[in-house]
Structure formats: C-alpha cells, structure tokens
Design a protein around this nucleic acid. Structure first.
Lengths: 127, 127, 127, 127
DNA sequence: GTGGTCTAGACCACC
DNA sequence: GTGGTCTAGACCACG
C-alpha cells in the first residue's frame, strides 16, 4: 500500500504522511477504520518506528486521524475528512491558477486550458 | 525585484531560482536580455555569490537562461520561454486535476470548483 | 450522565474523575447521595472496573466523596463540597490572572477582558 | 532561565515549550531575537538535542518562533506574538469561567469573585 | 499490546 | 556552525 522512494529528496516521514493522506482522501482507508500499529507499519516498511510515529503525529495534527493511547490510531470521521479534502484541493488548485495568472495567462486562456486538461484527465480515467 | 524571505522553509537558492523563473515567465525580464552578474546580484541581495551561482546553473539546466562565458547570462529566446511556460503549467494543472479525480471529485464538481477558483483568483488579481 | 471521549488525549480514568467532579459540583449528584457501584458503572460505560476504581480513589483523596466499606461510595457533605468548589475555582482563576499580569496585561485591560469573557460565556450558556 | 522539573509528570519537551512561551509572552525574549541553538540549549539543560528540537518545532507550528535553516531560530515578530498572547489568554480565561458557570456560580458571584481576584493579584504585584 | 517519550549517536543540506 | 532527519534501543502509562 505504501512505497518509500529512497531516491526521493523528501524525508521519509513526509512521504509516508503524504501517502496516508492520499489513501484516506481516496477512501482506500475508510473513515473510523484502524490504521496499522506504529510498530507493525515500521516493520512492514523496514523503517524506524519513530519515523512512523512522526507521520502519525502530523496526520493527527492536521485532523486526518485521531489517536487513542493504548489502542491505536484511527481514520477521522467522514465529515472531517470531507472538509479536509475540499480545503486541500482548493488550496492546491488556487496556487496553480495563481501561478498561471502571474505568468501572463489571461482568464480566457486559463479557462480553455483547464477545460482541456479536465477533459483529458477524465477521459483517460474512463479509458 | 527579488525578495528573500528568511522565514520561508525553502533554501535561499531555491527561492532565488523560483523568483527568477517568475520574472522571466511574466515577461518582467525580457527574452534575450542580460541578467545581473552573479556578484552584483549577490551584493544586491546581501547573500553569498555561491548561492546565486547555483540558481543560475539551475535556470540554465532547465532552459530558462543561457550563459556566454566571459560575457554573462541571458534570458532564453521567446519561443523557448513560451514552450517552457506551457509545458510546466499544463503538467502542474494535470497533476492537481488527476489528484482530485482520484479523490472522488466528479467531473461536474471539478468543473464547478475550477470555475470558482479561477473567478476568485482573477478578481483578486484585478483588485 | 458520563460520556467518554476516546478521541480525548486524557486517559479515561481522568475523564471519569473530571466528569464526576462536575456532576458533584454542579449539584447533579446530591451531597450524601450514593454513587453507582464500581462494577455497575464499569458495565454502564463499557470500561474496565479498575479504571472506575482508580477514579473513585482519586475523588476520595481530594475529598469529593467518601467510602464506606461493604456499602459503597457517597458524595461528601454539602459544606465540604462547597469549600472545595470555592478553593479550587479561586486558585484556577488566580493563576490565570497572575499569568496575564506577568505577560503585561494592565489592570484595566484585564478587567475589560474578563468582563467581555463573562458576558460571552453566560450569554452562550443562556442561549 | 529554563528549569526542568523531573518530578513533573509532563514530558520534558512540553515543559520546555511551555517555559519558552512564557518567556516570549512576557517579553523576556524579545521579538526577532535569536534563541539559543538546539545543541547549546541541550547542553545547558543536560538533555538530548532531539528533545529541544521537538520543543522548537512545536513553538514554530504555533507561531511563536520561526526557523532559518543553517542560521538558527528566532522569536516571531511583535504583532504575531501579540495576537497569540491575546488568543491564548482569552481561551484560558474562558475555560475557567465556563467551568465556574457549570459548577453553579451565578453571573453576579462570578463577577464579584473575579474582581476580588484581580484586586488581589495586582495589589500583590505592586507590593 | 498500544502509543508517548527520551537518549545517544549518526549523516545531511545549507550558509 | 545551524537545524533536519533517521536509527536503534530503552522505559513508561494505559487498558
């Protein structure tokens, strides 16, 4: 489920965090379901438990999961995940569009480009 | 023209590179025009010349500028810049949209969301 | 009457203790009245009897309840509860105000701030 | 400046974080001033650098300080500190007042009590 | 068994 | 020199 890329410049804990977010947002990890234990995942990925712990901490801080000491970590409730997904996606999108606008793309160009890309992505997904 | 934010997490050379790209893509630095010398810019920004040098190297590798030994660095030709801009922007956009689609946003939601964001960004920029 | 929040960082026994204190201080559990037995409450909350036992011990140590061996636990006498309430609350308040004063809040600011907060809390409670 | 209490149940990193917040809020550590380096403070307090690092991270996340890699950590700008101080203090106060209200203190009692405590604290400080 | 904390010691990128 | 990351291994509180 999670693959670590040692060639990637980003730190391991960040890769794990990012990957978990995806799994949660995509629904692969269901709301309220139990995550693998810190130690189990550490063994599974052959990395140090502290590193997993750090990822889980970050996920908790951002509201993706919650922790019950002595029991384990769990994916947050559906409504919380939904909220996070929207915020995150909008922010990403806004940044890109803003970059584009400051590079001289007019509103018309932007709209056309975006439409094209959406078409491309969704048709590719269908195929 | 270039402002360094020491509170930014990114290393300085990356901030400079990014800033230069923006200036080039937005047209603030015209195609074929001469960039300030490594030393001059270093003094101007009160940072180490090595840092500027690294940025210039990176810009050259990515095709934004070209170097003429003994003379200086120059912004690439308009057609090269244009090509870079489009490729880069499309790729960014595609990645985001793809992420969204794999997180369960339907094509309709995506279209609506994007429209909203474009409206927001361009109206903000106007104001 | 008692709700356990597993997402809460505090250990369960502490949540139970805290909750009992509130019930006692607010008068929901009357002075001299009998508390549910350790086992009954444990079953009721679906938690380990040891956890309840620990809470009851703590409440006894702090004077909120008293235990009669073989009979059960009882809420302390009204005058004891009253004394505890006042001391505890005053101490908490004093600490906060003291902190504020050492952070540079003037007496005037403090008075204004406090008034504002009281207004907010009591109006919220009414609503 | 910072004292660690090993009898305290709270983890060391939390004690350090809390202490730093106080020093910053009270003005003992001036805005924009440089904090002791992770290693230096670790030696000074005879604890592991990782522990200090964790405290600094938390302070950064909450906006009390900012980090410049390769240079050091710095207290945030005055306006940011001011904002944080207010939020933090109001929250503390609100919690206490809310507790009091749910323990049956009427608004009049509360107002009288608070006035008394403020008087006590500020006169004590003066003396 | 779970996660939380801490230590000791290592290597890295940046400046 | 600085902070950032990671490992290995230990002990603790909780349930």
């Amino acid at each position: 489920m999670i693959i670590i890329d040692y060639k990637d410049k980003r730190p391991i804990f960040e890769q794990v965090t990012e990957r978990m977010k995806r799994l949660i947002c995509s629904g692969a990890l269901e709301p309220e379901s139990k995550l693998p234990s810190v130690r189990a995942l550490a063994v599974d990925l052959s990395i140090n438990p502290n590193t997993i712990s750090r990822s889980y901490h970050e996920l908790e801080n951002e509201g993706y999961i919650y922790t019950v000491k002595g029991i384990g970590c769990f994916v947050a409730a559906e409504k919380d995940i939904h909220r996070l997904k929207n915020i995150r996606f909008r922010d990403d999108l806004k940044e890109i569009v803003h970059n584009g606008s400051s590079q001289g793309f007019s509103r018309e160009e932007m709209t056309a480009l975006v439409e094209e890309v959406i078409k491309e992505v969704y048709n590719y997904d269908k195929a």
